[in-house]
Nucleic acid binder design. Structure first.
Length: 299
DNA sequence: TATTTTACCTGAGGGC
DNA sequence: TGCCCTCAGGTAAAAT
């Protein structure tokens, strides 16, 4: 499932091939891939054809590729949802099984390539969106030099690996939240980039029960949670992300290795790597939650 | 206003 | 073999 590390792997893989490349042709095979786009497929194709990507940026799980002709200030925005993939293929490569959109691009160094958006469950989407200034004046996200974000990303908080992420603001926000800490970690308007897998992993590492009320956490505990969030995200990024099956792959279609490093997620019934007690798998917020009831005691 | 629930979607895998 | 059911979960709209 693409969370911050997986999306960053995709962004970093895409950047050298798309920055400086001109869009030669756009093919929309399935309109459901444009649910975030304000217009129809025709306007999407017309809005991209002939233009050049000038950067590859990311905040949390959102990606965007700013376009040239700066007076309009817009970008191609993408979210991978549950099963979205952005693949780099040779020009003229056969259509992928779940291909939704294809961009044929021409790069001054790499030549003709295809950027393929493939998505089994169609929760992901692409859109053309306007860029607006960031309230704090800092760069919009990773890979972005300009202090702008797409309007669709403006309400998303900075992610914990962003240099402009404000730890003090995060701690203050948690003091006012009576919701469970896991729910707050998954709230992209509080902190972005964390999904179900890394929420479980970070809380296990910080020894915090997922249903503890955020406002009940001591400041030093919040600091520990944030530290563990960063540690697990950075480690997963270094290992190329988490892949359980063909759902998440990099731009070349290769899987990541972090699934081998998971301590709690997906290990219900198995011994806790720290204390040996059984990891519990609970239902929480219509999804699964994994934790060690011995290490992660509820207050 | 703040928080919680639901809809969206497809394919894999288990039970029978 | 094949049908039906459950599960996976990020986002945003809808409901509470």
């Amino acid at each position: 499932m693409p969370e911050l590390p997986e999306v960053e792997v995709v962004r970093a893989g895409l950047a050298p091939a798309v920055v400086g490349a001109q869009i030669v042709a756009v093919t929309v095979l399935d309109d459901r891939a444009l649910t975030r786009h304000p217009g129809d497929a025709v306007s999407f194709e017309a809005g991209l054809a002939g233009r050049t990507f000038i950067a590859a940026a990311r905040r949390g799980k959102f990606l965007w590729l700013p376009l040239d002709t700066g007076d309009t200030g817009d970008a191609l925005v993408g979210h991978l949802g549950m099963s979205g993939q952005l693949l780099l293929r040779a020009s003229g490569a056969p259509v992928e099984r779940h291909e939704r959109v294809r961009l044929d691009i021409r790069h001054p160094v790499h030549g003709d390539l295809a950027v393929v958006f493939s998505d089994q469950r169609t929760f992901g989407s692409l859109a053309i969106d306007r860029l607006i200034p960031t309230p704090d004046g800092a760069a919009g996200g990773w890979g972005a030099d300009a202090a702008v974000v797409p309007t669709q990303v403006a309400h998303i908080a900075r992610d914990p690996l962003d240099a402009a992420f404000a730890d003090a603001h995060f701690r203050a926000a948690l003091r006012t939240k009576r919701s469970a800490i896991k729910r707050v970690l998954l709230d992209q308007t509080v902190v972005s980039g964390i999904g179900n897998i890394y929420a479980d992993e970070a809380l296990w590492a910080a020894r915090v029960h997922p249903e503890t009320a955020a406002s009940d956490l001591a400041t030093r505990t919040v600091t520990r949670v944030l530290t563990e969030v960063r540690t697990v995200l950075e480690k997963a990024l270094a290992e190329g992300g988490t892949s359980f099956d063909a759902q998440y792959v990099n731009v070349n279609g290769q899987a990541g290795y972090f699934a081998h490093s998971l301590n709690a997620y997906g290990r219900g019934g198995e011994p806790c790597p720290r204390c040996g007690g059984p990891i519990v798998r609970d239902s929480f917020m219509n999804r699964s939650s994994h934790y060690c009831p011995r290490c992660q005691r509820r207050r």
